[in-house]
Design a protein around this nucleic acid. Sequence first.
DNA 1: CTGGGCATCT
DNA 2: AGATGCC
Length: 667
Amino acid sequence: MIRNPALREVPLGIQQKNIIVTCNYVARELGVTKLMSLTHAKEKCPQLVLVNGEDLTHYREMSYKVTELLMSYSPLVERLGFDENFMDITKMVETRLAETPESNSFSFKGHVYNHLSAVVGASDHPRLALGSHIAAELREAIHSKLGLTGCAGIATNKLLAKLVSGTFKPNQQTSLLPENIADIMDSLNCLRQVPGVGHQTAKRLQALGLVSVKDLQLFPLTDLVREFGGPSAQRFKNLALGVDDSPVTPTGAPQSLSDEDSFKKISSTKDVLEKIQELLSSLVERMHKDGRQPHTFRLTIRRCSATNKWFSRESRQSPIPNHTGQKITSGSSDEAVAQLVPLAMKLFHKMVDSSAAFHLTLINVCFSNLQTRGAAATSGKGSITSFFTQQRTSPRKTQICPTQSQDDSSQKGDIHCMDHQFSPHSVITRRTSQKTVTTKSPCCSEAALHGFKREQSLAVAVEDPPLQTVSCNTVRSDFDEKDDTMTNRLPPNVDPEVFRLLPEEIQKELLSPAYTNSVPSTSSSVTVTDAPHITKNKTPQSFTDSQNIKAIKEASNKLDSLDRLVTVNHQSPEGTSAFPGENVMGEGRLSFPWSSDCEFPGNVDPKVFSELPLDVQRELMSEWKQQKPVLKTTSSRKPGRSLMTKDRKAAGKGSQANNLLKYFKPS
DNA sequence: CTGGGCATCT
DNA sequence: AGATGCC
């Protein structure tokens, strides 16, 4: 609408392929919704005017302008997609509070959640009230300087700011008072509406019988830990309560640039090559404008096959030779593309046997491992410094380090700012007074750009400051803070400090009754070396129940058709235990075709499997690895979580349920 | 189950 | 390299 103001008054839909990805409010009043199919939209609203939105350039540029503008007020800005930003405005609020002694004459700008009058509570919550004024100013700046309207939410953490931002929809703002936190959480219709709870998580929660936010609030944490592991369990529970201690992590420049296209079908190598060439050309241009040099290239495809009709992607990546990367940064785009195309095709052939038939429905090209010019090579793989540069502990965001120094560290986001003075311990204490403002804006665009990075990376630079980052970074206090109950339940001989460092799956295992109830009293010890390997003398005794494994095996032995073979993979007898510690990880399992070198689920008869056509085998393997059901069985599944989850894990190649095995010494 | 991105975690 | 999550 900014690019073409005439479109403001007509119902407008932004089209990507066969979908209306978004639309203006004129169209919404006529029944058009986001993510509606084109045909459906045209039925509802024949006058709908369409603009193609497959090229994101304009939206991306405008998006970064918004982020940049916000950063000019305070550097703590975190992007969420192209049209949302979190901003920690605590500092701004405190500054203003110090400047305005008459704290009794405060009022709120905009709405206050669950309060009809915006005056209510203002003097009780001077910081939130000031936050609402700042939010109003930010929105006004975005409007006057960029021409965009949008919403804002003002609250004491990111989760709440986001939730409250949508309560008064077009172009308005809302503040949430602490006494109304429970109200807004309870107002959600289901757990899926909690930000951070996606489709998969919602399904797993539902399998535990949890549907509403209240269900999750009241659910015993220990049961949740069994399903999700300590950290995730606590996180989900907190979210349901409206608790979110995650800092506003400055996003900075993107860590990868990618370009993709989907299509009906591509079935020839030549078409693949042409499409890759097309995608690479535009991506290389974007990369050049960014200014950084990519050192990794990734090719991703989505293929259409018998078992895997759509979705689920495969990818291969490889380093980019330095001379090629330099062609990109230097602007020799054609040469760069000429060198990248063969690289891409090499990766393509690692995934697709082009001597057989294939059909792709999507291709994506991606640059990552982006390094600013002149930055020291600090992230060398073998280099010890890579352990100190965050990548392994908490992925740091980027090289953006605004010149305005911020005496406000957010524990994991600000390590790169160490040359400024501040104490890494000041973080958590600020929680109670923190204000987060979320701004949402419809993206639209036009205009020139000063690249986000150009200015930004100049101000900043300093990729990966080497050693001095260690001290403030190593320990996330997450765990110690929140989960006494968990560490209290630890088996003897397990150092809580060590336990905390273990992978989630392992933690989960150690907390299962098998361990906590009957740890062999003899010489069971857990040791951790630099790599997280647990060495145990014995497998616990309580792993003996192999009943359902037998049942599954019997069932699978009867299978003679592909469909049924597949079906048993995600359907098993009812009443199976919910978690691996109880009966799945038994000796039966160990003796079963399930060792780490066995690549397919143990409930599938190897003979049957081996007799399948090779390509079908490969597809099935792919399915299992992806932990996705091959067949949509309509048969009734008990709500109390049948084996779906467990089998998904089982299918996960070495990364899930059989995870534990590789931590035991081979017997 | 549609679309072009991005991020984080394992 | 894949799964999951966000827009």
